[in-house]
Design a protein around this nucleic acid. Structure first.
Length: 109
DNA sequence: CAGGTGACATGAG
DNA sequence: ACTCATGCCACCT
């Protein structure tokens, strides 16, 4: 991943935890989505799903970080830019993600 | 230092 | 399948 990005995030006032979340999010491949829970697990905090949401909310670089690829565990979009996740669904659908009735059609464990 | 908040998860009813 | 109640974590005031 881009190490300079990490530095920028730190400079932006993000903590290590936050940076880890944003980095993990930036690694999500196009056409794929990941749940807040999955992100939490990836960074080594399996129960910090809420904290993950907090991190994405503070995301200073929405262009670099595809925060729209992060959804809830039940397939719902959650919130985006402080509003309903309708925008998220649109973007995801455009990237080839299967959407059903406004809900992301991903394999649930 | 203590209390409140939020882009969440899960189980129970 | 739906709604409510609790639990968890990091951050902010």
């Amino acid at each position: 991943m881009d190490v300079s990005l990490r530095r920028k995030l730190i400079e932006s006032g993000m903590t290590d935890f936050q940076v880890s979340v944003l980095e993990a999010t930036s690694r999500i491949p196009k056409g794929h989505v990941k749940t807040y829970k999955e992100i939490a697990i990836e960074i080594g905090h399996p129960n910090a799903c809420r904290a993950v949401g907090t991190a994405l909310r503070k995301n200073p670089f929405p262009i670099t970080i595809p925060c729209h690829r992060v959804i809830k565990s039940n397939g719902e979009p959650g919130k985006y830019s402080g509003k309903s996740g309708t925008r998220k669904i649109g973007l995801l659908q455009r990237e080839g993600v299967e959407i059903s009735r406004g809900i992301v059609n991903f394999k649930k464990k």
